[in-house]
Computed example of a mutant assay.
Amino acid sequence: PFYDRVCASIRSIDPDHVIFLDGNRHGTAFDMFSEPAENTVYTLHDYALAGFADSGRYPGMSRGEYVDRDFILRKFLERAEYMRRTQ
């Protein structure tokens, strides 16, 4: 609802302005969006667990999960699913 109000306000003044929107949970969850809005960029912030959350070894265990290149790729693809699906 907040994004709906903000986008409507911006569009009422400038219908051509590019709007950037973050997802929930620090820009990693986009399930609250349905169809993408016209002239809108959905920004993904993909902060990998290793090094950021726990300052642990990489590759290695972080929050009970083994984090390596494959793990990070799977997480990125999961988080980018909305953008890939809606192009």
Rank of each mutant, 00 (worst) to 15 (best):
P1Q: 08
F2I: 08
F2T: 09
F2W: 11
Y3F: 12
Y3V: 14
Y3I: 12
D4M: 03
R5N: 10
R5G: 12
A8M: 04
A8C: 07
S9C: 09
S9G: 14
R11H: 05
R11T: 04
S12A: 14
S12N: 13
I13D: 05
I13V: 15
I13K: 13
I13Y: 03
D14S: 10
P15D: 03
P15K: 14
P15R: 15
D16A: 11
H17K: 12
V18N: 02
I19K: 02
I19R: 07
F20Y: 12
F20M: 09
F20Q: 06
D22C: 07
G23R: 03
G23V: 06
G23Q: 04
N24S: 10
R25W: 09
R25Y: 09
H26W: 09
T28L: 01
T28Y: 00
A29N: 15
A29H: 12
F30V: 07
F30W: 08
D31W: 07
D31Y: 07
M32Q: 14
F33L: 06
F33A: 00
S34H: 10
S34Q: 14
S34K: 12
E35A: 14
E35M: 06
E35D: 12
P36K: 15
A37G: 15
A37Q: 11
E38P: 13
E38Y: 10
E38A: 05
E38N: 13
N39S: 08
V41D: 01
Y42L: 04
T43S: 05
L44Y: 00
H45P: 12
H45G: 10
D46E: 04
D46G: 05
D46V: 02
Y47R: 09
Y47D: 02
A48C: 05
L49I: 03
F52A: 04
A53H: 04
A53M: 09
D54W: 05
D54A: 05
S55A: 11
G56N: 14
G56W: 07
R57L: 05
M61H: 07
M61R: 08
S62I: 06
S62C: 15
R63C: 14
E65K: 10
Y66T: 08
Y66S: 11
Y66K: 05
Y66N: 10
V67D: 01
V67A: 01
D68C: 07
R69H: 07
R69G: 14
D70V: 05
F71E: 01
F71D: 03
I72A: 00
I72L: 01
I72W: 00
L73H: 09
L73V: 15
K75T: 13
F76G: 05
F76C: 05
E78L: 10
A80Y: 15
A80D: 03
E81K: 15
E81C: 09
E81S: 14
E81R: 15
M83A: 15
R84Q: 11
R84D: 00
R85D: 13
R85F: 03
T86S: 13
